[in-house]
Amino acid sequence: MRNNIDYRGFARLVRIETLKMIYKAKASHIGGAFSMVDLLAVLYNGILVADAANPDNPQRDRLLLSKGHACTSLYATLALKGFFPIEELATYGQDNSRLMSHANHKVPGVELSTGSLGHALSIACGIAVAAKTKSERWKTYCLLSDGELDEGSNWESILFAAHHCLNNVVAIVDYNKIQAFGRTNEVINLESLCDKFLAFGWNPTEIDGHDYRQIEQAFLTKTSKPMVIIAHTTKGKGIDFMENSLLWHYRSPDQAQFEEALKQLS
């Protein structure tokens, strides 16, 4: 891996801060926030051109969090990277806080407000067209949930990106295989997801979304087509009683669960 970056250590801190936010705010969606932490750790420490001192730097890479409900771990990541004071995380979900429970573009480093699923990939395509038109070299990343691929709008943009060879778009599917009512293959089966992207003209890569080496390697792949990283992940990753459980799509930990989770992360 590049420069021996401590992705694991960073991811651990992100999970701790995320846990604290969700516990304090009695909020939902910890499962989906935890499943994408390792992806964020690699993106923000090894891949993205991101400038905490100047979040709007025109030369930055753009990351759109399409699964806006999982914003806690993005907020934690951005705070840990210095985009805003880490103390502010304590205001998450509180009255008058900009840290609302779906991604808010008023937060430094958050490109786009999201929360309604199936929106961001189209916007990523528009940003990518803008970059190509201006001959810019930065990339646009779009982090999606698996369940949101049920939304037809995504497939409109998947067609579009391939047709226009938007190889400056990287989609990442956090494939934790659990959505609001159950397992994705029981609600609306996405399989074979890889074959679908391939058939649509994308360059798909399947990885273990918790293996830092695989994540890093996937992001460093050069491609002439739009690329999708299908990251097989575990919902609630990092806390044994939350892992792979539908309950933790909704549930907020009580005090005992919070303490146990914190112990596991520490």
Partner: peptide, 19 residues
């Protein structure tokens, strides 16, 4: 193409980048 939701998103992305 015949894809208005995508068109609106693309337009948003273009506008976000100054177009």
């Amino acid at each position: 193409g015949i894809a208005e939701q995508n068109m609106a998103g693309i337009a948003a992305g273009l506008a976000k980048e100054g177009f």
